[in-house]
């Protein structure tokens, strides 16, 4: 049940994954703050949900804090995110924007905003989850690189090879 498929369509990254769990449960993992806090943040990071208004136009404001001393410079770092829900079809679909923000919930206008569309589909013995991450324009991709949010290309060719040949 761990099928993972990923591909790029234009400016959209699509990731598909099947889970051996009922659709309602997978959906709840995305729509219940306590559940999100349990799995959302990266390993070694604690996620705290500040606001969670699960309705179209509602906001989801959260903070991820690095609590792992092994992560060196990242230890103690806070990363705030703010999302706005655009569309909710219970147990089927969630569309939201994903932006960088500060602790007060002010979205940083300098940084790109992504639109995420998550779909939940019944399959035999479980749920197919399809996530589409769309950048508004190619320029914003460059901004993400310039701000140092991702590693440089330098030593990544092997991994890249693995990605493109998937």
């Amino acid at each position: 049940m761990e099928t993972l498929k990923s591909y790029v369509e234009g400016n959209t990254l699509v990731v598909e994954r099947s889970f051996n769990a009922p659709r309602a449960l997978v959906f709840e993992a995305f729509s219940t703050p306590a559940h999100l806090e349990a799995w959302w943040g990266p390993a070694g990071w604690k996620t705290e949900v500040r606001t969670f208004e699960f309705e179209p136009g509602g906001t989801w404001h959260y903070c991820m804090t690095c609590v792992d001393k092994e992560q060196g410079d990242y230890y103690g770092m806070e990363s705030w995110g703010k999302s706005t829900f655009l569309e909710i079809d219970p147990h089927r679909k969630i569309v939201y924007t994903d932006a960088f923000s500060d602790a007060d919930g002010h979205v940083n206008p300098e940084l790109p905003v992504m639109t995420i569309t998550n779909e939940f589909v019944d399959i035999p013995n479980g749920t197919l989850f399809i996530s589409r991450s769309e950048f508004t324009d190619a320029e914003s991709l460059q901004q993400v690189v310039d701000m140092g949010a991702v590693e440089g290309f330098a030593s990544q060719l092997e991994r890249l090879d693995a990605i493109v040949s998937r």
């Binding site: 761990e2 993972l4 990923s6 790029v8 990254l13 990731v15 994954r17 889970f19 051996n20 769990a21 449960l25 997978v26 993992a29 559940h35 349990a38 799995w39 959302w40 990266p42 390993a43 989850f129 996530s131 991450s133 950048f135 190619a138 991709l141 460059q142 993400v144 690189v145 949010a149 991702v150 590693e151 440089g152 290309f153 990544q156 991994r159 890249l160 990605i163």
Partner: peptide, 23 residues
Amino acid sequence: PLDVWRSRLEAETARLDRLEEFL
């Protein structure tokens, strides 16, 4: 763009691994 996509894909993959454990 490839740096961004690769980073995004890695983050997404790791996140879905955690979701799987959670489920």
